[in-house]
Design a protein around this nucleic acid. Structure first.
Lengths: 202, 202
DNA sequence: ATCATAGTGGAGCGGCCGCTCCACTATGAT
DNA sequence: ATCATAGTGGAGCGGCCGCTCCACTATGAT
């Protein structure tokens, strides 16, 4: 009964993604997005409600892609029974994503979770973004149990350092420039191993 | 012969520092800075020329403080002849700065070099900021030589990972929240050791 | 043919931004 | 006393922002 869409929402997200990777969040304005995507200001607001919702929805697609890839890699190593290697695989996941789909990795590197999940993100997208936290924490706890037979806060913190902080330090810059060196991945695996060897606080 | 200053430029930098730590760069506007520092819009522009110059000058003070502390720690370990421990000391420098002067560390964590050194920074401050790069690279090369008797790009890159990237990953979040745990410093030392053991690419 | 309605396009509102402009002020030199 | 001048204070300019508003359109149902 209504007029059909002429701008697919996904096409707007694609344009937003390009602009976020090329120019960063601060340069993504509704006017630039309208020009790049071909959709008018009015269409974008009708479909999404706010610019931050567009950013949230674009990020959500890629974060899901990443977590799926990461979970697959983790399950594979856990099936082989090696908790330590599972943590290393989880840490290496951003590098694997960059191999598979550089733009996906570049979007996740351009914008962190807290940059995305702001008050202006519409509830349906915000809820889905928060659901990703639960997924990630579940993976982290699973890894902590695999290494130490414990999934308490202290062990989860150690795994978080290995799987979130160390990859950000070593890989993100190279993903941004488009080339992840094998040597950097080896350094990451070594650093993860060393942090795991420290164990949780006393 | 002229009218004397009623607002010391350092007091404006102090106010800018507070605001940067408390609210971040995006919330630091000339109006907020004028209100907090007590200096008027006109005074601030007369003294600095642009808001980005204020930010640059505030950051410069703290970056110098940090590099001095870091260089002292490095020299001490190099005098003892242990290149590996010198790299670990350099990596630990942000944690030591946080112990000495939390606000200094928080400013450096709130803003990275590239956020500060923009086109709008007045030449005298911009030049001094660029001079810090030279100082840091000299330290990195010195460390590379101490570990491998080489100061080429490949070895300097490894030291950069140890001294710049790993501390950012492990310490910055805790500095932001105001409490650096000893266990985190131990993890950092272990990760630095592991990355050094990898050596430069083949 | 008419109607209800989701979607479209673009003018423009209100607000904040960095910065400019300029009348004015407080000093030391004469 | 007068003057030159570095510094002060604040009004307000021009520009960009996110977002609203609303007349209009293209469709399927009747």
């Amino acid at each position: 009964m209504p007029r059909p869409r002429v701008h697919a929402p996904d096409a707007v997200l694609d344009a937003a993604e390009e602009l976020l990777v090329e120019r960063g969040r601060a340069q993504l304005t509704i006017r630039v997005l309208a020009e790049r995507s071909g959709a008018s200001n009015g269409s974008i607001y009708h479909a999404f409600g706010s610019l931050e919702t567009v950013v949230g929805a674009a990020w959500l697609r890629r974060a899901r892609q990443f977590l799926t890839l990461q979970a697959t890699a983790v399950e594979q190593e856990l099936a082989a029974g090696d908790g330590r290697r599972a943590v290393q695989a989880a840490a290496d996941a951003p590098a694997r994503l960059a191999d598979d789909d550089l733009r996906a990795a570049q979007l996740l590197v351009a914008l962190q979770r807290d940059d995305v999940l702001t008050d202006a993100v519409a509830a349906p997208i915000a809820d889905k973004l928060r659901a990703l936290d639960t997924t990630l924490v579940a993976t982290l706890r699973r890894l902590a149990r695999a290494v130490w037979d414990r999934g308490d806060a202290a062990t989860v913190d150690v795994v978080t350092v290995c799987v979130v902080r160390l990859p950000a330090a070593l890989l993100f810059g190279e993903i941004r420039t488009g080339r992840v060196h094998p040597h950097t991945r080896a350094q990451l695996a070594a650093a993860v191993g060393a942090v795991l060897d420290c164990g949780p606080p006393h």
